[in-house]
Simulated assay, not measured.
Amino acid sequence: MTLRRETFLDQVKERGKYDNPQEADRAARVVLALLGAHLVGEIRAQLAARLPEDFALILLNPLQSAEPLSPERFVKATSAWIEGATAQTAAWDVSAVLSTVADAADDDLLSEILLQLPTGYDLLFGRPQPT
């Protein structure tokens, strides 16, 4: 089921403790653009189908990444794209967005997503996996 835009942003805003929906929107756009560069094929399409249309399009037309980023480098890249962000605020942004994405995906889809990502992303999604 596709999340409504307002519902998605409200969840990101609440989790990120943002002052306004614009801050949540900016974080969501950056994180989804970076995430889209790491997912391929059917998995990316399945996740996009569960997101509001404008965010789905960002996921499907990602920033290009030469290589998969480790979780630490993913957070660092996020901070580079968000004006005024620090490593700490970027980690907060990533967590707020990816935990909302994890809720939109079911457990099976999230497992498939995590298989496409370097080790450690389970923590960014707020879904620690047993090792």
Rank of each mutant, 00 (worst) to 15 (best):
Q46A: 07
E53K: 13
L123V: 15
V30R: 00
E53C: 10
K13M: 15
D25S: 10
T131D: 12
D103Y: 10
P21F: 05
L117S: 10
T86L: 02
E14I: 13
L117E: 09
V12S: 10
P118E: 04
S99M: 05
P130H: 04
L114T: 10
F125R: 11
Y121C: 06
R127C: 03
L109D: 05
A56W: 08
S99N: 05
F74A: 07
A48Q: 08
L115D: 13
L114R: 02
A90S: 09
V12W: 04
D122L: 07
P52L: 08
P71A: 11
L115E: 15
D19P: 06
A91I: 04
V94H: 08
D106L: 04
L32S: 02
Q129I: 13
L98Q: 06
D25E: 14
L123F: 11
T78P: 04
V30F: 01
V31H: 13
L69Y: 01
T100R: 07
D103M: 14
E23I: 06
P71Y: 06
L60Y: 04
S99D: 03
E42Q: 13
A37C: 09
W92R: 15
L98R: 01
R50T: 02
A56I: 09
W92T: 15
Q64G: 09
T78R: 06
N61F: 12
Y121T: 12
E42D: 14
L124Q: 03
R26G: 12
E23P: 01
L51G: 01
Q22S: 08
L114G: 13
A87V: 15
T2L: 14
A102H: 03
D107Y: 11
V12C: 12
Q129G: 07
D25T: 11
F8R: 00
T2P: 13
Y18F: 13
A104M: 01
R5D: 05
P71V: 12
I113G: 07
L98H: 00
V94P: 08
L63S: 06
L115A: 14
A90I: 07
D25N: 14
S65W: 06
S65H: 08
R4G: 15
I58K: 00
G36H: 03
L47W: 00
N20W: 11
D107I: 13
R73E: 10
L63G: 07
A66H: 03
G84W: 11
A87N: 15
K17D: 15
Q88H: 06
P68A: 02
R50Q: 05
V94W: 02
Q22W: 09
N61K: 10
I113V: 14
V12Q: 08
A90G: 05
A96C: 08
A104T: 03
A24D: 01
A45C: 05
G126I: 05
N61M: 04
D25G: 06
D54I: 14
A91Q: 12
